[in-house]
Write a protein that binds this DNA or RNA. Structure first.
Lengths: 205, 205
DNA sequence: AAAAATATCACCCTTTAGGGTGAGCTCCAC
DNA sequence: GTGGAGCTCACCCTAAAGGGTGATATTTTT
């Protein structure tokens, strides 16, 4: 990750410009500045940022929180809240959106920089916990899976059916079955549910 | 969690007292104030805090980071860094300790409060990833599951087969099937793999 | 070049899961 | 005491998954 793309959602153009400049000074690229919810959501899909800075009290409502929910469901990037004040009611609402941080205005370049760095670092370390690698699996079984078998195991973990896998891999459903048979034997299991549970325990522990 | 116990690690007694007072004003209990690494580690085991606030540059070295590592390995509580400045070298080191946040001095009560609230909330939401509660499921579907249906869903999530569930619940496999049919309809899914995936997304990312 | 591992596919058959319909029971609310 | 919600069960059928055997390419290793 050489250059980090930031999306800023802030209705006050003055502050927005402040932020953009501060970010530029510390080697971030501001790929977009949105002044309302609509723009924000549009820019999210268009500019694919690595992180978002959200003003909580966008407009008069709590549009920032809704944007956060959109990010959580549709995009998987970290985000930080910007706010000029903080009280318990708002806090209770934003807590549930799992922000990677919270920046209270006024803030300076250093605040911004540290918050963004921590947020990105934490986010990827937390979310790599469910990245499934072939070595994770093979390091815990006597008979290692082949690459193809692992690909199919991943599909099973994602809930695919045999016919779906056959289509996606451009191979016969019989071949899929053969691979699955081998996987089951290597992992010493007898159903996809067991396979999923096995992977879960591998990732969890 | 009615009262939240906080451990403060800060070598400057002046600032430490500041923090203690600020925290008391917002209903936290400061269970200990450590002025060096040794005291900090001692207080960790003795006072079992819910969260720790760590001064990064304790003494002259980066003892705060070592305390953080101790927390990560031996205690599972969230912590926040306190620091009077921020630069890239330090930041790179602290990032790896996965702090739940970073507070740059000077800060006021509100900053402290929001940071602690967010930290605790995030921490438990991140780490609760393996507790499945019926409300977690029902809060995300239009048609709520009944208790029995939820029990069966949990079994499915654990990889049980229908006949296993029938045995464990002392009911007919036909009844199991009926429940599963209802579950599928309520969750808008069509197989146990989909069910497991659905639960996974509810719990995790 | 020979051997081994991997990937591909085709049968067969059994078991499990999924889906539709109907129905009896209990418990609680109205 | 009627009605609804929830739990129970049965029977039917189809679809999907699981398991066994065997076989042919392709690729990698030796």
């Amino acid at each position: 990750m050489s250059v980090i793309n930031v999306l800023v959602v802030e209705d006050d153009p003055f502050i927005a410009e402040d932020i953009r400049e501060a970010l530029s000074n510390v080697d971030y690229t501001v790929v977009g500045v949105a002044h309302n919810k609509k723009d924000a959501i549009h820019l999210l899909s268009k500019s694919s940022p690595d992180i978002a800075l959200l003003d909580i009290n966008l407009g008069d409502n709590l549009d920032g929180i809704q944007i956060a929910e959109t990010i959580n469901t549709d995009y998987q990037i970290p985000f930080l809240y910007l706010t000029s004040y903080s009280n318990k009611e708002i806090l209770d609402k934003v807590k549930h959106t799992l922000p990677m941080g919270y920046i209270v205005k006024p803030f300076d370049e250093a605040d911004l920089f540290t918050a963004v760095e921590i947020a990105i670092s934490n986010f990827y370390q937390i979310n790599k916990a469910d990245a499934l690698h072939i070595n994770t699996v093979n390091s815990s079984v006597p008979n290692p899976l082949t690459q193809k078998e692992f690909e199919i195991l991943k599909d099973i973990y994602q809930g695919s059916t045999n016919s779906q896998m056959a289509e996606n891999h451009y191979i016969s459903i019989n071949t899929i079955k053969t691979h699955i048979k081998n996987i089951y034997e290597k992992l010493d299991i007898h159903s996809r549910s067991e396979a999923i549970v096995k992977i879960r325990t591998l990732l969890g522990s």
